[in-house]
């Protein structure tokens, strides 16, 4: 399955770390310890490019946010309109994440355990929100939930539109993290539990759910992070009305367009902190799973 779309973190440690390696036994994937000349040069160029493109610009945000001191930083966040945008973003992201935990797990279950015509198509459609340009996602949602809605639901420019956009762009995350785990799940264990007298519900709650838990957490974290940072799909759909439908990213953009980079950087640093926290959480979840496995 296209786990690339889901965003589980990259595991580069491999099955054998240098310390735990048993020479000559397991399949070797141990990194060579030393960087030869060519590899050293590659690392240098790569790190330079990565710094110029990612690390320095992101540090610039932190630097700019910190430049005005703590008071002006707090001031930016305490601005009523900004605070309302942050609250709306976090609340909507949290609601959508909970929704995704339920629907995402159900969809993953259906994709793995159920069999019906058109399942393969369902499987491909799951990735559409990932592949679709976000601005187009907004347009697409307007078609069904906008002014000319064929089902009479005009959610454009309402807080519902924020939920809708978040739900759309985060759809693949939990599905794609839970799906592979569910595929790998050992049917023997479920059968053993059944032979010991466990009911279907008990098997799900006591056997299946605990195994899916790390994947659900990982997917939920990614889904939350993605929702918090969403921008493109809201531009046309939500109307970005202050205090009503304006999310954090849109607020940052209006700061940028007004030339107040310091305020933009202050709010951006909050989103950046969330992104970093997500990476740390994912790293921890993965390490725990690896230890258990």
């Amino acid at each position: 399955m296209s786990s690339a779309l889901s965003g589980a973190t990259i595991d580069t440690t491999g099955p054998a770390s240098p310390k735990g390696r048993r020479p000559g036994r397991a399949k070797r994937t141990t990194p060579r310890n030393t960087l030869t000349g060519g590899a050293g040069l590659g690392l240098g160029i790569t790190m330079l490019w990565f710094s110029l493109l990612v690390l320095l610009p992101l540090s610039a945000i932190v630097a700019r946010a910190a430049a005005g001191g703590w008071d002006s930083y707090v001031n930016v966040l305490q601005n009523e309109q900004t605070w309302a945008a942050v609250v709306l973003t976090v609340r909507s992201a949290a609601i959508v994440t909970v929704l995704n935990i339920v629907t995402g797990t159900i969809i993953a279950w259906v994709l793995v355990r159920d069999r019906f015509p058109g399942k393969a198509i369902l499987n491909v459609i799951i990735d559409v929100p990932f592949a679709l340009p976000t601005i187009v996602a907004g347009l697409v949602l307007l078609a069904l939930y906008g002014p000319n809605s064929p089902i009479g639901l005009d959610w454009a420019f309402t807080p519902n539109s924020v939920l809708l956009a978040f739900a759309f762009v985060t759809l693949p995350f939990i599905v794609r993290t839970v799906q592979p785990v569910l595929e790998e799940l050992d049917a023997d264990v479920e059968e053993a539990a059944a032979s010991l007298g466990a009911s279907r519900f008990t098997i799900f709650r006591r056997i299946i759910l605990p195994s899916l838990f790390p994947a659900i957490i990982a997917g939920a974290t990614l889904s939350f992070a993605r929702a918090i940072s969403e921008f493109g799909s809201l531009v046309l759909l939500s109307g970005s009305r202050p205090f009503e439908t304006e999310v954090a990213s849109v607020r940052i953009l209006s700061f940028i367009e007004n030339g107040s980079y310091a305020s933009a950087a202050a709010l951006a640093s909050v989103l950046l902190a969330v992104a970093l926290a997500v990476i740390v959480v994912l790293d921890l979840v993965q390490r725990r799973v690896a230890r258990r496995g």
């Binding site: 965003g7 990612v54 610009p57 945000i61 990614l222 921008f231 951006a268 969330v274 992104a275 990476i279």
Partner: peptide, 24 residues
């Protein structure tokens, strides 16, 4: 590095744009 590589996936595109503007 391996953790930071994933950062662009969870950073808001607007923040990405802002970060580049601040430097360049």
């Amino acid at each position: 590095l391996s953790a930071l590589i994933d950062l662009p996936l969870s950073v808001s595109p607007v923040v990405v744009g802002l970060s580049l503007v601040l430097v360049y």
